[in-house]
Write a protein that binds this DNA or RNA. Structure first.
Lengths: 240, 240
DNA sequence: TCTATTCTCGTACACTGTACGGAAAAGAGG
DNA sequence: CCTCTTTTCCGTACAGTGTACGAGAATAGA
């Protein structure tokens, strides 16, 4: 990792006008051998199957059959490639029904779509955790969410805030859910952790933990927990 | 980055029993020149002032005045050092009053403490996003949270779930809040983004966005938004 | 003093993002 | 046709990463 970019430690990112409102075609010079779409799709495929840490410039390039440095003709840096990836998969969210009028139900549906979307692309919560400029597909989905929120009568800033916070909420829940499920996939690690917690509970200084581990209750499905939290959150939202 | 560890791609992490329940002292061989506490504190200081990406083995070592490889006598790898950092700062959360009996108020106080804690250590949301085994300080705070939840009558698994989800919620909100504030610190970037959004809004395909930007309403403070969401979440929680 | 054990840390290696610059390809103008 | 300009392609190089290895230093028990 090296960042000899001129940017000083403040914020990063590329001019969104140059990125998303591209000047179409320069019609001069060598024709590109690849498309941005193709490269971003390869990066997404890599992240989907092997995780975000497998997305390196060299591996993406190998996937599309180019040299590593060629990618820099399509995205100015890796950070931007990640932004493109996020917007690329957001295209899966843009086939939306018009709002039904019951904004709470519609908003819950929005959140559920986001959840299954993030579960399909498990790297999304991590990729969303840094600030990004919304691309066209993200904006299309935002447009839908704003339409859903229209009956609330909230003002502009409040509607945007609700959408952002809801997305952060879903990302947090999915990140936790994904962490849980990958931890459970490794039984000896899980067993070691259980032994450790049992040892802590047995030391006498953690009576509440001891009791919680002793009386576990029936196991909860992540989806049910998500739905319960989400319902509480949205049912309680003030209108106007 | 290289991970020639024997672990196969499944899960990572170190045996928590060996990590947290350490055998005290071996009383043989060369005496350690540093303490784990000292090293972890240096890493935390680095993360607090320069961000998580400044926490490299070499920089931490330089901070405590050792060679980079010496750190591996105190933590088996960087991942573990991060776990130690998380638990280290969690010590700031362990001076808790006993539950008042009003569990909703107590739980809101827990979340607010977590929020200011994460705002003090802005790298925490990112560090928490991967699965970690709770260390002693984290367990002490968990013990408090479980005590707070006692009046709810929830079973063990449900109480643990509520705590985990609440933590994920707070982390998500704080991550968003931090991203917002660092973006606002760079005025030309913010202006470029505003121009971009205005251009999108003006294209006629985003009427809701156009209206939201045109009627912004008065600006919201992050804390007020957090409180509103949190209250809705907790007031709506079912009891047992 | 010898030996076992532990910590210290210089060196080395595989890997990262990316600056640089030359070569290749394509259109425009002669 | 040749050039000029512009754009893409990509090999090479470099600074910086986590960490394996192993030689040396320090300490405790024999």
């Amino acid at each position: 990792m090296t960042k000899p970019r001129d940017e000083r430690s403040g914020a990063a990112g590329v001019d969104p006008e140059q990125l998303w409102l591209r000047p179409a075609e320069p019609r001069r010079g060598r024709r590109p051998s690849f498309s941005r779409e193709e490269i971003v799709a390869a990066a997404v495929a890599l992240a989907d199957t092997e995780g975000l840490e497998a997305v390196t410039m060299r591996r993406v390039a190998a996937q599309v059959g180019s040299g590593a440095m060629s990618l820099y003709s399509y995205a100015p840096d890796k950070e931007t490639l990640l932004e493109l990836m996020v917007d690329h998969v957001s295209a899966e969210l843009t086939d939306t029904d018009p709002p039904s009028g019951d904004w709470r139900a519609d908003l819950k549906a929005v959140a559920h779509r986001q959840r299954v979307h993030m579960l399909r692309h498990r790297w999304l919560p991590a990729a969303l955790s840094t600030r990004r400029v919304p691309g066209p597909h993200t904006l299309a989905f935002l447009e839908h969410a704003l339409a859903v929120l229209r009956p609330t009568g909230l003002d502009g800033a409040a509607k945007l805030e609700v959408f952002a916070q809801l997305t952060a909420f879903v990302a947090g829940q999915v990140a936790y859910e994904v962490a849980q499920s990958t931890a459970a996939r490794c039984p000896d690690r899980a067993a070691a952790e259980a032994r450790y917690l049992a040892a802590v509970a047995a030391d006498g200084h953690h009576p509440e933990l001891a009791e919680a581990l002793a009386a576990p209750g029936r196991p909860l499905t992540p989806e049910a927990t998500f739905t319960r939290f989400l319902d509480r959150l949205i049912d309680g939202l003030d209108t106007g």
